Amino acid sequence: MTGTPPLTDDGTGLRADRVSRTAGGALVLDGVTLAPRPGTLTGLLGPNGSGKSTLLRLLAGVLAPDTGVVTLDGDPLGSVPRRTLARRLAVVEQHADTQVDLTVADAVRLGRIPHHRAWSPATAADEEAVRSALARTDLADRAHRTWRTLSGGERQRVQIARALAQEPRELLLDEPTNHLDIQHQLDLMTLISGLRLTCVMALHDLNLAAMHCDHLVVLCEGRVVTAGPVRDVLTEQLVAEVYGVHTAITHPAPDGRPHIRFLGAAPRER
């Protein structure tokens, strides 16, 4: 297995350098470095409690690291103006709710807030961004539905649409497929992998990660176990050691992407 990859030299984009974070006296992240390549999809893998969501919150600027630094184009995230950060970076959380029963279209319009001053009317560009986001997430026919009438999967797609309407360069997603049926999981992953944005996504489904991610970072107990191209990272030994599961991994696709068949529990060696 490989260790944490070094940061690239150009300093551009969103990066975490040796970040650590404690919560309730417990070390949640321990010296994690993440340098996603521009325009690629990086998958964050690891068991529950491995630190994936905390790392995403550090990258989003919602939390500050206890040690280490998160930077955007070389500048510490805390020094980046909030409006600049909101225009550059969009976040899709695992769960979303609202006390106001917005329509789908109005919820997606929230993604346009960073692009104009408060109380200023929507522009033609705003409305086009909203229409495009609704269409790309298969929500155009639900634009006038209200939030409380939506299923969990539909609400998740509204979150994705709101993020797309924001027109970010970096997109952070925390388990975005959790509430989706199989068809919409595949549609969503195909959409995200084709965006050509710098995407970092926490995932539990190893086969979805294998099919769609460009690079993987595997966390366990707050540390990076391995990171690199999908084929190099997803091995039978890795899955056994990190997840405690025996697998048979083959590479049937023409591009060599792995397919994982789960065989049963295995004792963890870590």
Score class of each variant (00 low, 15 high):
24 G>A: 11
90 A>L: 08
200 V>Y: 14
150 L>G: 04
93 E>V: 08
236 E>P: 04
83 R>P: 03
110 L>D: 04
109 R>D: 02
82 R>W: 00
70 V>G: 09
5 P>K: 10
118 A>H: 07
27 L>K: 13
24 G>F: 12
13 G>A: 07
153 G>F: 00
175 E>I: 12
195 L>H: 05
30 D>N: 14
90 A>G: 15
2 T>N: 11
74 G>C: 01
222 G>M: 14
27 L>R: 15
211 M>E: 15
87 R>Y: 03
247 T>K: 05
253 A>L: 14
88 R>N: 11
15 R>S: 08
151 S>H: 01
240 A>R: 14
7 L>W: 00
61 G>N: 12
93 E>T: 15
211 M>S: 15
5 P>S: 11
39 G>P: 03
15 R>A: 10
206 L>V: 15
73 D>N: 12
101 D>H: 04
58 L>G: 09
198 T>L: 08
14 L>C: 12
177 T>R: 03
115 H>K: 00
251 H>I: 05
111 G>I: 08
269 E>W: 07
233 V>R: 00
31 G>K: 01
65 P>V: 00
168 P>T: 06
173 L>F: 12
264 G>A: 06
150 L>P: 06
196 R>N: 11
70 V>A: 07
34 L>N: 07
214 D>V: 09
154 E>L: 00
198 T>V: 06
124 A>K: 10
150 L>C: 08
41 L>R: 02
55 L>D: 06
204 H>V: 13
161 A>Y: 09
35 A>H: 12
243 Y>R: 13
261 R>Q: 10
140 A>Y: 01
244 G>Q: 11
162 R>V: 03
75 D>E: 15
134 L>I: 03
168 P>Y: 00
117 R>K: 04
23 A>N: 09
183 Q>T: 06
41 L>H: 12
62 V>N: 01
69 V>R: 11
258 P>D: 01
190 T>Y: 00
145 R>Q: 11
35 A>C: 14
66 D>C: 07
74 G>Q: 04
184 H>M: 00
232 D>T: 06
206 L>T: 13
59 L>F: 09
133 A>T: 11
242 V>T: 13
78 G>Q: 01
229 P>I: 01
72 L>P: 02
244 G>I: 09
231 R>T: 13
7 L>Y: 01
235 T>K: 02
15 R>P: 09
254 P>K: 02
80 V>D: 01
146 T>K: 07
93 E>L: 14
154 E>Q: 14
38 P>H: 05
188 L>C: 06
151 S>V: 00
179 H>T: 02
18 R>M: 01
138 D>N: 03
168 P>W: 00
209 A>M: 15
53 S>K: 15
137 T>V: 06
62 V>E: 14
10 D>M: 09
78 G>T: 10
256 G>F: 10
104 V>N: 07
168 P>L: 03
234 L>V: 09
205 D>W: 13
137 T>P: 04
86 A>F: 06
3 G>A: 09
136 R>C: 06
152 G>F: 04
187 D>R: 08
241 E>L: 05
37 R>H: 12
191 L>E: 05
74 G>M: 04
250 T>P: 04
167 E>C: 08
100 V>P: 00
43 G>H: 12
